[in-house]
Design a protein around this nucleic acid. Structure first.
Lengths: 203, 203
DNA sequence: GTCTATACTTCGATAGAC
DNA sequence: GTCTATCGAAGTATAGAC
């Protein structure tokens, strides 16, 4: 019952807790970040990890399975980081900083582009996106009310879409080299954060 | 002097006003939208247009040249549509609707993902992004002042980053099937637009 | 768990005939 | 302007030895 998916053949698969498997996932993540999803091929992933291409197919039956594993590992890691951010004394600022992390934002963008034409990956990514945002909304509902933000006017869910959208676009456009208006936007965000949670700490 | 780029070989190239060339670009655009940039190969573009693969290389020396042509054609078209939107009686709403156009937003996302690891395309895309946003900012500066929005508090450039970010993410997440918070966010945007430019027209 | 060997497909790109 | 023919490289995936 280890086989993920449709279980059509009898071919054996490597264990999920294998160090080699983790190394392949690390290599895939690097390639995804540095050169985009089209660069994540069995040959190149293996080369990056210093292994033979056939090992990729030993641990992941298909390349889609590898991408799925990448989404799941990344999703779980993000949920953990987010839980810590939401529990911090300045949850809004912590959330802004978490979603502004360049590596995370680029990974999300790349996986989203890939998911656009791969059904299984799309479903998995959408499921994580939903979980992540719902947990954010639950945790922030009380916080925002405490800040005097009326949920009738600005519902927590809407504010979270806004935070995600802004941080994502700023990172994406930075990567492209198109930064018109970024300084102004960051200043505006900083002013809002400072208003509700005080100035940024320099630690 | 027709050769775009470094002019290293003497191979001939098709004319830029050719109907066949336009058909190839149309086919490439369709593939990009429907199946992502990885599906835009010379063979598949030609098949979609009902032509032979070698014709792609006759009109575009390399696949990068094809993508560049796609960026330029799309960029020019967008600049025209945007000029009309900004000159309309409700420029803010027109801009929101333009950037919320699913086809345009998806095309941008896909090209941005592609550009992440193709230098020439990245430069071209960034140049268009800069032009587009600067023209927006110029046109809206006076409008926003007329609405009583203080440019010291909310600079036009910042507002435009916000509009772009929100519309882009809403379309992207819709495509993925992750819509948590979207209804709330759209309602909030609609309230803002209605406040400054009156309710939506049903025509 | 990792290797060699291999089958088959699709890719970008070019040369040269018509 | 479009065709036939063709190259070498890279892709996914599998079988079976060690």
């Amino acid at each position: 019952m280890r086989d993920s998916g449709t279980m059509s053949t009898t071919r054996r698969l490597g264990a999920e807790d294998s160090a080699t498997r983790a190394a392949l996932l690390d290599a895939a993540r690097q390639l995804l970040l540095e050169e985009g999803y089209a660069a994540v091929t069995s040959r190149r992933v293996a080369a990056r990890a210093g292994l033979k291409p056939q090992l990729v197919h030993y641990y992941f039956r298909t390349m889609d399975d590898l991408f799925l594993a990448l989404v799941r590992r990344g999703g779980e890691q993000y949920l953990e980081r987010q839980a810590r951010a939401l529990a911090s004394p300045r949850p809004l600022r912590a959330l802004w900083e978490l979603s502004s992390d360049p590596a995370g934002a680029r990974l999300t963008t790349e996986l989203a582009a890939l998911a656009n034409h791969r059904k299984a990956i799309r479903a998995e990514l959408a499921a994580y996106a939903g979980r992540i945002r719902r947990l954010q909304a639950e945790a922030l509902a009380g916080v925002l009310a405490g800040y005097g933000i009326d949920a009738e006017v600005v519902p927590p869910e809407a504010l979270l879409v806004l935070v995600t959208a802004l941080s994502q676009i700023l990172v994406l456009e930075d990567t492209l080299g198109a930064t018109t208006g970024h300084a102004e936007m960051r200043a505006l965000v900083e002013r809002c954060l400072a208003h509700y949670e005080g100035p940024a700490t320099n630690g």
